[in-house]
Design a protein around this nucleic acid. Structure first.
Lengths: 314, 314
DNA sequence: TATTTGAATAATTGAAATTTATGGAGACTC
DNA sequence: GAGTCTCCATAAATTTCAATTATTCAAATA
């Protein structure tokens, strides 16, 4: 690694003298004294073993070597200015990228709206959404691959301590039936009615599935007795199955807004049963937090907070 | 003029850390201690109001802002390296331009050979030849527009003191006749014979003409009595005139080598008359002297020095 | 839990740049 | 052409800034 034969300050001085045609004027421009300018140029000339200025006449004229150096000098200083501007833009959220991780459900039904709001406020920050399992999202936040994660389930225990977990909204998981299902007429179902249903569920690895199972179990139901018609790995597929009369399911309300409005799916109420989960923001407190990430957490998230259906907020 | 928010040293450190993935290793690479590296990066981060490195884990990882800055950093440092290389090339005469001024005669008949020799030795230095009057050449040297001048006459008095004038060769101005001229048979002419001749001369503004006039006058001749058939402003035109038998002339021997060899022109000898002038190199001692200029003066010029006809040297 | 490794911090030292003060050289004025 | 003015160079003193040593702190490894 070679020593650098000049400093940016020296280049700045060089440029100023070239522009002003005088050591003194350059000194005034840079708010330093004239000897400071002289000495820096002398050092520069000594280092590079060239003569840069011809101090003969009234004006300080560039020599050939000086002109050559000035060319590079301007390019270098321009790059420096650009770098500063880019950093400033980043600081003022006029650039940069925010990388968000989310699970399937939130990633599909919730994040687009959140990201839309963010982009509306900060159009110059590009946003990247990575949809992964809750576990993987957690790890990505932990090792800094993504800025923040939005999850709807439980983190593995080790990550739970490492990361900052902020619940920001409640997501209701509604029991949905085919609109012509016999039970869809009843105002309110009983827990026992659930044993009569054929369920179409997410696969058992899914976080949402685990959350639902746990909540049902906690409310006194024997989930072993529940009949599972089929397990699918996509909410859309389950929705289609329910709409085709293939069975019932617990689905996040955020994912069935459209179908409820269209009446193609029936949302049933079950007495004494609330299947709700917390949507959580996870961040890594021991890592650098980008400005974009901060702003997302402070300004965007609250707009979706504490709602049965975050959707209505829009 | 804004203050620069970083130094080249800081950028160099940044680059080293990014490459090594560690403050300590970067410090070793740069032959400084680890705190020095830490402090510089801290200053940089403070100045730019960003976090550059994520010091969480085992490795020092770049943040988004850090990656952004690193991009500029590499470009800037590359430009610096290039600048150094260009300057080095200039110092070692692997680049640059040498600008030479010469009067008509030297410029036409002598300089091409000198420049050829120079270019042979330093093929990477380009040479520019500007043919002007002696006076203008002198002024150009004085104000630094050209690196050096080669002249064959007298400089205006004020310039004479300002510039360094180095005689380096003698240029003989020979009396030339048509090869069938009646006097071309005589082994040696007398001064009085000159009055019998019709002269074809350069115009009276020309330095070479002035030099000839002065030398003839100094040797006791009455130049008013000399018959001037015509005045032309080009040596080539005069040569043609002489070869056509229109008259005689005093011409620099360097300009008639070919014609003498071909026998199309006759060089006469005049008893007790030597028409010789000093060819001089002029430089400006109060101005910057380029390496190329130095070398030309020291290495090229001597090869043409102290010769009746510099041509023979080649 | 102990050990190791890497980075931050504090205090000291040392180097380099800036400033004030001054001298000298060329350019403009009368 | 003498005087003045402007501009740059130089010298000495000061201040600022960066590097080093020594130490602490935190995290990762064993």
């Amino acid at each position: 690694m070679p020593e650098l034969p000049f400093t940016l300050d020296q280049l700045r001085i060089l440029k100023a003298i070239a522009a002003q045609g005088s050591f003194k004027k350059a000194a005034d421009l840079l708010y330093v004294t004239q000897p400071a300018v002289s000495l820096q140029i002398q050092n520069l000339e000594k280092q590079l073993e060239i003569t840069i200025f011809d101090r003969g006449g009234r004006k300080a004229l560039l020599t050939e070597a000086g002109r050559l150096l000035l060319e590079y000098c301007e390019r270098i200083l321009n790059q420096c200015d650009e770098a500063c501007k880019a950093i400033e833009d980043l600081n003022s959220l006029k650039g940069g990228t925010l990388i968000i991780g989310a699970s399937q459900t939130t990633g599909t039904y919730l994040m687009p709206r959140m990201i839309g709001l963010f982009r509306q406020k900060y159009p110059d920050v590009s946003v990247q959404l990575q949809v992964h399992s809750t576990r993987r999202t957690g790890w990505s936040v932990a090792n800094g691959q993504i800025d923040l994660g939005i999850i709807g389930g439980q983190l593995p225990g080790d990550l739970e301590n490492l990361l900052q977990v902020i619940p920001y909204a409640t997501d209701e998981l509604a029991l949905v039936l085919h609109y012509k299902h016999p039970l869809s007429n009843k105002k309110e179902l009983l827990k026992e009615d659930l044993y009569k249903l054929n369920f179409v569920t997410l696969d058992s690895q899914s976080t949402t599935r685990k959350v639902v199972d746990k909540l049902l179990q906690d409310s006194g139901l024997d989930i072993q007795r529940l009949k599972i018609e089929m397990e699918l790995n996509s909410l859309e597929a389950i929705k289609n199955a329910v709409q085709s009369g293939l069975g019932a399911s617990f689905l996040p309300v955020v994912s069935i807004e459209r179908e409820l409005a269209a009446g193609t799916i029936h949302k049933a109420f079950v007495a004494d049963l609330e299947v709700k989960r917390e949507l959580k923001l996870i961040t890594n407190p021991s890592r650098y937090t980008s400005r974009a990430s901060e702003v997302f957490k402070k300004n965007i998230l609250p707009q979706f907070a504490s709602l049965e259906s975050p959707l209505r907020q829009l």
